[in-house]
Design a protein around this nucleic acid. Structure first.
Length: 423
RNA sequence: GUGGGUGUAGCUCAGCUGGUAGAGCGCUGCGUUGUGGUCGCAGAUGUCGCGGGUUCAAGUCCCGUCACUCACCCCA
């Protein structure tokens, strides 16, 4: 047992799996980048009050899962448990909302929640997210959802599902909340569940325990109590989603754990992931910006779980990010050859060719073995004869064939053949 | 946070009713003179998660602890 271990519940990614992680992260961000979203790099910790006010004091995320600490200036700071509050804070602080609206941003990075770790539930979790702020056009809701769906599809994922609903707004939700509260009051619920119902009755709707679930058969649903505006908005969103050919499932009991969500709300789940099946989710938020001290602009965004999406890819047997890490591997057989190799290596890499060489003064056999392990399709062998003749041997590892090339022409030749193959 | 399971070489795991550790894969080397992947041979690596207890004796039983894992909860 090593003296030091990574903190509990914190995943690490190292080769070879780390390349799959990078591929997933890039794939999740790609559609948004191509839709004109700009990148925003945010602090990993913020004023604790930002999350308390923005995400909601009553949420589990804020009330019992935040890593909160006091800094040397006696300020209360918290490791960010989610991304939206920070993005909104930055928009307000830097007045990003004073130009053309909507402001469209994307971000990626670690978030922190002190939950009990599980497969796919980590204390340091990675997310890729986007926010479109300053507009309540339902087409924007559809765009955000479409970009998430596209990201998953690009990776080759198939066994996932999109749940969609509307949570209403400040006009219609309070009335519905009352109806639901009255309904829940007459059920047989245990104390913790009653407490939860008092805090946020919506939350009880997606309780998975059979003894609770079975009593919810004819519970009143938000979608049946939407005001006219919310109803229209939701209908339009669905219309635009059809235009974009996105498949979804109506999920009238879908609830989100963050208080700021209003109207359009969605979640992507993967069927092979077990209890932690949510691979992404998001929705619209009407009051968030105002509650953080900005103008009353509406926004919509998503957060996609990088860790869980990687898990989902693995569960579906997709080998994302696979493939050799270098195109060429150089094998020197003598001291003079090592000098030639170091020079050649620099030239290869400068020419954009991914290259590595045999280090450690291994024998030819051992070096060839290392070359094989590297996965490089081509190996450049340089021995005393080659040094004298100012040429090199280039071996095609798949076919086993080998040919001599002059020192001057190797780089060009290799670049040509690599480019041919990548087409 | 609540309840269950697991923890043995780098990896996957075997070790029956307690008697001081094994396999496969991987790794290193060899199969003569400058060539990998297959094959054959040889070799290295474990305070059996950690701490305590019971016992003549514990990987094997008991307690604690840490980590992972499953469900709830929560959510990405």
């Amino acid at each position: 047992m090593p003296e030091f271990q990574a903190p509990k519940g914190v995943p690490e990614y190292f080769p070879p799996r780390s390349s799959a992680f990078l591929t997933v992260r890039e794939a999740l961000a790609f559609p948004a980048q191509h839709a004109g979203y700009g990148y925003i790099e945010l602090p990993v910790f913020e004023d604790t009050a930002l999350f308390v006010r923005g995400v909601g004091e009553s949420t589990d995320v804020v009330s019992k899962e935040m890593y909160t600490f006091t800094d040397r200036g006696d300020r209360s700071l918290s490791l960010r448990p989610e991304g939206t509050a920070g993005v909104i804070r930055s928009i307000v602080e830097n007045r990003l909302d004073k130009g053309t609206l909507p402001v469209k941003l994307w971000y990626a990075g670690p978030f922190f929640r002190a939950e009990r770790p599980q497969h796919g539930r980590y204390r340091q979790l990675q997310q890729v997210g986007i926010e479109a702020v300053g507009g309540d056009d339902p087409a924007l809701d559809a765009e955000v959802i479409t970009l998430a769906d596209e990201a998953y599809r690009r990776l080759g994922l198939r066994q996932y599902r999109l749940d969609l609903t509307s949570l209403g707004c400040a006009q219609c939700r309070p009335a519905y909340r009352e109806v639901l509260t009255n309904f829940l009051a007459q059920l047989d619920l245990d104390e913790p569940t009653r407490a939860r119902a008092a805090l946020n009755p919506l939350r009880v709707l997606d309780d998975k325990r059979p003894e609770v679930h079975d009593q919810l058969g004819d519970a009143p649903l938000m979608v049946d109590h939407l005001c006219a505006e919310c109803r229209d908005h939701y209908d339009s969103v669905r219309g635009f989603l059809r235009d974009a050919r996105v498949q979804w499932q109506e999920a009238p009991r879908l609830v989100r754990g963050l208080d700021y969500y209003t109207r359009t709300t969605f979640e992507f789940t993967h069927e092979l992931l077990g209890a932690q099946s949510g691979i992404g989710g998001g929705g619209r938020y009407d009051g968030l910006m105002e509650s953080v001290g900005g103008d009353a602009l509406s926004g919509i965004g998503f957060g996609l779980g990088t860790d869980r999406t990687l898990l989902a890819c693995e569960a579906e047997g997709l080998d994302v990010g696979a493939g050799p890490r270098v195109d060429v591997f150089v094998v020197p057989i003598s001291d003079a050859a090592r000098h030639v190799s170091v020079g050649l290596l620099a030239e290869l890499r400068e020419a954009g060719i991914r290259a590595d060489m045999a280090y450690g003064g291994r024998g030819l056999k051992g070096s060839m073995k290392a070359a094989d392990k590297s996965g490089a399709p081509r190996v450049v062998i340089i021995g005393e004869d080659e040094v004298a003749a100012q040429n090199v041997q280039v071996k095609d590892m798949q076919q086993g064939s080998q040919q001599a090339m002059t020192r001057e022409e190797v780089v060009g030749e290799l670049r040509r053949s690599i480019m041919e193959e990548s087409q």
